[in-house]
Amino acid sequence: MKSSQTSDPQLSNVTVGGASRPPRLNFGHWLGVIPFFVFSGLFLIAPTLILAYRSLEGANGGLTLENYQQLVSDTVISAYAMSIKISLTTAILGGLIGFLIAWVVSMGGLPPRFRLITTTFSGVAANFAGVPLASAYVFTLGRVGLVTALFKMFGVELYKNGFSLYSFLGLILVYLYFQIPLMVLTILPALDGLKREWREAAENLGATPVQYWSRVAFPVLMPSILGTMILLFGNSFGAHATAYALTGGLFNLATLLIGQQISGDVLHNPGLGYAVAMGMVIIMAFSILIYSILQRRSERWLK
């Protein structure tokens, strides 16, 4: 009964869109999306084009590849490397931890209210970044932070054991604060998309739970998991405010480097900044491409 209801609208769609009427361009249909096109034109495409142009502009005007040649310097390469390293680490860690949380929430027999609490908290935390996030961490894990003090009470001196909030490890902890919830939010629908019948069919055919997970559930989820991890990668790769607020721009990250070159007084070299930014745009575009390929595949499976 239920499925005949869901299949009927699909059937009628096919006949209307596919066979009888050829699609016609109707201005009315497009009216609603004009704000979107105007917005993306103004704030995405135009800035990218300007950026591309500026990155090719020499210090004294004229087009040149000079800026790009400077990319192969130690500072720039190590900034990219550090950005990628942090983004990869937080994407993988955030992805794994987030997946486990989402899995517990959706599979385990926890009360429904727990799920609501988790998603609400994740919705807030995933968007918590920049100065407020950095301050929150300074208050808790900074040199005189609350948690640091708590550890001290139990005889563990975090900062004497090599920990620093203003280091690679510290930055990862801070980034995970928004990476994990983002993973939870994006992977929960995919976990919900696993049909109960798949598990039962597998069991019925003799599969153990491990076999079901390794041969059916995990492969089905894989595009979503990888896709979301790429999203996390991009999320952390482009983060600027949090890192800046926490380390005061002293940490060598690609985003911070751009800031120094474009608006800094000491290292002022806008052309180089633009080129570094262009490099980031390309890396981001590439991740989004892979993301959308994986996303399309998982949609097909989970529909």
Partner: peptide, 11 residues
């Protein structure tokens, strides 16, 4: 067991 929704493994 045969299910109403087929329950084939999509992958």
């Amino acid at each position: 067991m045969i299910f109403q929704s087929y329950a084939l493994f999509p992958n």
